[in-house]
Write a protein that binds this DNA or RNA. Structure first.
Lengths: 343, 343
DNA sequence: CGCGTTCATGTAAACGTTTACATAACTATA
DNA sequence: TATAGTTATGTAAACGTTTACATGAACGCG
């Protein structure tokens, strides 16, 4: 109501409530040693003065800042965006603030810098899709700083992590499409320095083997998860003497680009060739034909990561778990049984 | 190299460099009063010790935290994401960190709380699409706290702001499509408590008038920018005795939903009915048929806002400007001249 | 009824900086 | 060569909290 011109501090609240600032601090931090009636008085004073604790000072003095840092590689693909949505939603439930860092600019060295920097700002860290995190992960772990990895198939080191069942998703999808009749499948990999990409490729190849389909080199195109790869990969496949009947891209973005390439050749999806992706980003359902894909529970991964972090906050000694969330094949309109089946 | 276990402070750097901590502080802040050779020694010590200044302490002591807060309503639509991308890119150029707050949870009152909270955390604020900002805007302005509004057609109060030429965009688009032959156009509005939505509607209606086309109530559907509105609006229009030949949605998300509705009726876009949107979010180009739309320079709006903020940092007394970035009609495949033209 | 406990509250130091001020070391001037 | 005027550096207080410790009041027990 009244336009307090300066910042309201704990001391002013104390004065208003007729107690010392120490007591106010105790009330804020929920310390048990404060008489209910005193607490009430303090609470009222806080409300009346529109008091909000200064997080800087809090954290500096050794308390919690009630915010967690989120490191993401970028914001471009929609894929990250979904994860962040989940994180944000869950975080706000717990009354934490989100501090977002994009690290697309940060090669090797900057990583440690960022980690360092972030450390005295936030209570914990959420690392989305860390690229080569070995550098600072050890530092973090060793200092006992709370963090959880999202979508990183790590070195197996015992870090708290949440990921999607990439291998399983790729396997199941390939299996289903093979049963549908496809035997020549062009696969576009992701950036193979990412565990997720390797897992998807591996799941795919295992399904092939399970059906006794030979693993032909010309049907594996090495991509990097970027849109352009989808386009060039599709061109490569279509130029083959015997093109595949299905293109399976390691993510949706590449799959969509592949569809464009197919159409540019005057071919139709899925009548002439089927296309599928991985991720189920929002636009996968919007694109025409709607994209068959493997759904990663992106938003839920974010939520889960936050929950794990809160668990760690509660008990720092808790042994780090790695949670793998299930993926699900989403059949839409971009896939169909192959039209001409020689076999 | 060496695994410093504790946080490195200014004092340790001072010891290593053989100077007092005051001098180190001066070096950090680029104070002129320090001998070049001393500065060199301090710099080396900082590097050797992997020193990074503690932002909390810095800000608490009255300095800058080198981070700016960004308030967004949510992260869902892709529309906001683009703006944030621009902000992030430009911010990192200036060496600032981004602190992201999503306010979807924040009705009326929380706004002031958030603003208060944020204030002692960041050096400045970027408010994306503030809903009813009058509450805290005055507080902010009155305290001389630096901030700039993004995509808010305000009360005309003199706040720094960047926006897109919504009126012009809608006018030009409508004008172009009318010249293409459309005379019955169904318009889906956005949430009319948002200035942008009003401007688009107004631009559209003005174009109609300019071409002496009567403004029929049944051809204006009041939406809220959400996907479902697009669907129901399209159904409404198609059920009309004389359906429009073009549906003009106030954003891309509604336009895409409208296309779905059209297709469900067994009609084809654009052969049977044209559809267009507004924003040019990334998926607008991906969707089939690719969506005709009005491009808002989303990313650039973010960049511009940061630049304005930096300007304010540089000289707080600078008089607040309102910048309106031009919009552009992007003709894609979802629009075509109307097929049967009675007139 | 007095003394050791327990519980509520006040106090002081610390967190890592910045900034205003004090001081020491130089210059330049007369 | 003494002296005022700079310029570089050191020092102390402040920022708004938390936390360990000190104090004082109330209470139960023998």
């Amino acid at each position: 109501m009244s336009a307090a011109n300066r910042k309201v501090t704990i001391v002013e609240v104390a004065a208003a409530a007729g107690v010392s600032f120490g007591t106010v601090s105790r009330v804020i931090n929920g310390d048990a040693h404060v008489r209910p009636e005193t607490r009430q008085r303090v609470l009222e004073a806080m409300r009346a003065l529109h008091f909000t604790a200064n997080r800087q000072a809090r954290r500096l003095a050794g308390g919690r800042s009630n915010s967690v840092g989120v490191l993401v590689p970028d914001l471009g693909t929609g894929y990250i965006g979904e994860i962040v949505r989940g994180i944000d939603a869950e975080l706000s439930l717990s009354g934490y603030d989100l501090i977002l860092y994009t690290t697309h600019r940060a090669p090797a060295k900057e990583a440690e810098y960022v980690a360092n920097l972030v450390q005295d700002m936030v209570d914990g860290l959420l690392l989305v899709l860390p690229r080569n995190p070995t550098d600072y992960l050890s530092t973090l772990a060793q200092r006992g700083f709370p963090f959880v990895l999202i979508d990183h198939q790590g070195t197996g080191a015992d870090c708290a992590a949440v990921a999607a069942a990439n291998w399983q998703g790729a396997y199941n999808a390939a299996d289903a499409l093979i049963r549908m009749g496809h035997r020549r499948i062009g696969f576009i990999t992701g950036a193979l320095d990412l565990g997720a990409a390797v897992d998807r490729l591996d799941g795919f190849q295992t399904a092939l083997r399970a059906h006794h389909i030979p693993d032909e080199a010309e049907l594996i195109y090495q991509g990097t998860f970027h849109q352009t790869d989808g386009y060039t990969a599709a061109c490569h496949f279509l130029d083959l003497p015997q093109p595949p009947t299905l293109i399976f891209a390691s993510n949706d973005v590449m799959a969509m680009a592949a569809m464009d390439a197919v159409r540019e050749r005057g071919l139709r999806v899925p009548e002439d060739i089927s296309v599928m992706g991985f991720d189920d980003i929002p636009q996968a359902a919007l694109v025409r034909p709607a994209l068959t894909t493997v759904r990663q529970p992106l938003e839920q991964m974010g939520r889960m990561a936050v929950q794990m972090l809160m668990e760690i906050f509660g008990d720092p000694a808790v042994s780090p778990r790695r949670i793998e969330l299930p993926t699900e094949l989403i059949l839409r309109d971009s896939t169909a049984p192959p039209k001409a089946q020689p076999s």
